[in-house]
């Protein structure tokens, strides 16, 4: 399964065990960009593709040991939606968190959804691929 939710998925179809935390209004994240959120002291990169899909990944870039993923450029490689770290430019799949340039590295991905025009993320349920 993928963690990417189109902006219109009704809350009902999402895993029950997830307890959702409010992040921001959808429009606070411009299409084709990412921005960071701080949830329970954990930094999450909230990403919105140009076609409106959302993803939430760990904001930590293991290649530079800096919390910067959200500030990367959003795009796709061979159709796989991804974000490129702004520091050394490695790409990470928005669906699995896997580093597309080094399969041994993977970022944690979190479920994300929109409800009533707001973006919500769950830290509890990690997304299984």
């Amino acid at each position: 399964m993928t963690n990417m939710q189109t902006a219109t998925v009704p809350a009902a179809t999402l895993s029950e065990d997830a307890d959702w935390q409010d992040v921001c209004a959808i429009d606070d994240v411009l299409p084709g960009t990412g921005a960071a959120a701080l949830l329970d002291g954990q930094q999450i990169a909230v990403i919105r593709t140009r076609d409106g899909r959302l993803a939430a990944l760990s904001n930590f870039d293991p290649f530079s040991n800096a919390f910067v993923i959200a500030r990367g450029i959003v795009g796709d490689r061979g159709g796989v939606p991804k974000i490129a770290s702004p520091i050394y430019k490695q790409s990470f799949s928005l669906e699995t968190g896997e580093c597309l340039d080094d399969a041994s590295v993977r970022l944690t991905v979190f479920p994300v959804r929109t409800a009533a025009g707001r973006i919500q993320v769950s830290l509890r349920a990690k997304v299984a691929e």
Binding site: T33, S64, A66, I73
Partner: peptide, 19 residues
Amino acid sequence: HAGLQDTNDRYLGNIQRDG
């Protein structure tokens, strides 16, 4: 245009190793 910019242009500064 914002989303097109490399982080340096997006935030009008050069990103450093620690972000």
